[in-house]
Simulated assay, not measured.
Amino acid sequence: MADVAYVICALNDIQSQRARGFDLAVIDESGEEKNFPIVVVRWGKQVFGYVNSCPHHGNRLDWEREQYLDPTGLRLMCGKHGALFELGTGRCSSGPCRNEHLTPVQLEVIDGDICILGVTLAEDEDEDDESGVEA
Rank of each mutant, 00 (worst) to 15 (best):
Q67N: 11
C92S: 06
H57W: 12
H101W: 10
K34W: 12
Q106T: 15
A25M: 11
M1V: 15
C9D: 01
S94M: 12
K45C: 00
S16I: 05
N99K: 14
S131Y: 13
D126G: 03
C97H: 02
G58H: 07
R18P: 00
G88C: 12
L61C: 06
E64D: 09
A19K: 02
W63R: 08
V4F: 09
E125W: 13
N99T: 14
F36G: 04
G95Q: 06
E125P: 08
L24C: 11
A2E: 15
E130Q: 10
R98M: 11
T89Y: 04
E29F: 11
A135D: 09
C54V: 11
G79W: 12
L117T: 08
F85P: 08
V109S: 06
V109K: 03
V109E: 00
V109L: 07
A19N: 05
Y50W: 08
E66F: 04
L107F: 09
V133Y: 04
N59G: 06
K80P: 07
F36W: 13
D70T: 01
Y50G: 03
S94C: 14
M1N: 15
D70L: 01
R60F: 09
V51R: 11
G21R: 10
D70S: 02
W43M: 12
G21I: 08
C78K: 07
A10D: 12
R18T: 06
V40C: 02
P55V: 05
Q46T: 07
N59Y: 09
E64W: 04
C92L: 03
D3N: 15
V7S: 07
C115Q: 02
G82A: 06
R20M: 10
F48Q: 08
P55Y: 07
M77E: 13
G88M: 10
S94P: 02
S93A: 14
R65N: 14
Y50P: 04
E32P: 12
A135P: 04
S30I: 10
Q17R: 15
I8A: 04
D23Y: 10
F22M: 00
C92I: 03
D70H: 00
S53H: 11
V26C: 11
W63V: 01
S16D: 13
V41G: 07
C97Q: 02
Q106G: 00
I8E: 01
R60D: 11
F85M: 10
L61N: 03
P37L: 10
R18I: 00
V109F: 02
R75D: 13
D28W: 09
C54Q: 06
N52E: 06
D70Y: 00
G82V: 02
D113V: 01
V26D: 13
R18L: 00
V39M: 01
Y6N: 01
L69H: 01
T72N: 12
R75Y: 15
D3L: 13
L87D: 03
C115T: 10
R60I: 13
E29W: 09
R18D: 07
